[in-house]
Design a protein around this nucleic acid. Sequence first.
DNA 1: CGTCAAGTGACAGTAACTCTCAAAAGAGGG
DNA 2: CCCTCTTTTGAGAGTTACTGTCACTTGACG
Lengths: 217, 217
Amino acid sequence: MPENVDMSAMPRTRSLDSLAEDMQPQLGLRERKKLKTRVAIRRATYRLIAEQGYDATTVEQIAEAAEVSPSTVFRYFPTKEDIVLTDEFDPVIVAGLRARPAGEPFLESVRHVLVEATRLILAHDHEEMIQRTTLLVQVPALRARMMQSLATSSRNLCQVIAERTGREEDELEVRAYAMAILGAVYEASLYWAERDHKDDLAELVERALSAVRDGLR
Amino acid sequence: MPENVDMSAMPRTRSLDSLAEDMQPQLGLRERKKLKTRVAIRRATYRLIAEQGYDATTVEQIAEAAEVSPSTVFRYFPTKEDIVLTDEFDPVIVAGLRARPAGEPFLESVRHVLVEATRLILAHDHEEMIQRTTLLVQVPALRARMMQSLATSSRNLCQVIAERTGREEDELEVRAYAMAILGAVYEASLYWAERDHKDDLAELVERALSAVRDGLR
DNA sequence: CGTCAAGTGACAGTAACTCTCAAAAGAGGG
DNA sequence: CCCTCTTTTGAGAGTTACTGTCACTTGACG
């Protein structure tokens, strides 16, 4: 396997790691190898799942395809679900929110940032987002594991909300509001996948958040 | 084991099935036995988990304590998590929502009904709600499985929303709104448990929903 | 080059499920 | 009361995700 792969030459198989990959200029060999293993495991997983389905794909197969031992797979990802679900979107969104003007109503900031982030992510990893959301619709175990993701994102979101609104980050209202937002975005993603990704996800996210803001009349 | 147990004599160990139990007047012996097995499994589970913790409690132990075979446990509950999480709250809430005046703003209806339902449930199964939410805080697997619960409740809620607002039940806005509400309620439950159930859960639910309605300022 | 720490693989073990099949037990008719 | 049909149960074997241990390899660094 060549040391430096031209990522832009593999339009259909870019991984969600690619964003992280792109901006790791010169780490030690150890770190680079680790990143490569991560990517290899994830690529193998996505490929095998696309071929055989989620349940039919065992960790052993993944390990073999990625040319590592099963132990190593579990060292990199605590559960099989995580191989599919792990992403690095939170920092992007948090940073985006911090960059918005302080006076702006908070939900407006969220809408702006989430819509922009969605476009960015789609531009970067379109195919993989499609695979991920498709799997999310098909595999209950993944939807379940998603809760963990939501909880983590929620905590991050709470922190920003606290900064912005001068509240405490563990206040009930803050947490409820954060989870409401994330729930809406989650539904937008599911909706997108269920309709075979025909719509513009960014637009769906915007509509979902507007619904939360306006209520239903 | 006696045929008829005086449920009101066991104030601390009443199960979430009790509501369902109370209103099954005279079914066939078969059905009554099934209900009893369900309750036995759940009681055994809660007892063992209280003694040893969730992870340390195996399905085999549960089966033994409930005096059934492990196969039977899995026949009644698809997963170990479900033994803890399954409830019958949705019908209560749906019926409550249908009973609200048609003109009322929808979120107001939701607030009324959820707050009332919370009080009712607490009055009926207080100890078990405490156990459940405590476990929810402690056990990640349960939080994850909760997603399934939320999805089901969400579908039910969507249906009522559709009836009330004249929209389609699979419309994005409806689904996003439903999930936002449930997310907020979920956070209220967690918050309650994290603070050792000192607060009034019904009040927390109300605050959480108000936060969604008003946004954060 | 040598030492140390980090990363890996082989292996054994656990427990949550799944499937299959035969025995047991309620339902219902004679 | 008994015979039959159907539902429910238990027993057992098998799969797989995950955990923990330990010896081995391989980058890092002086």
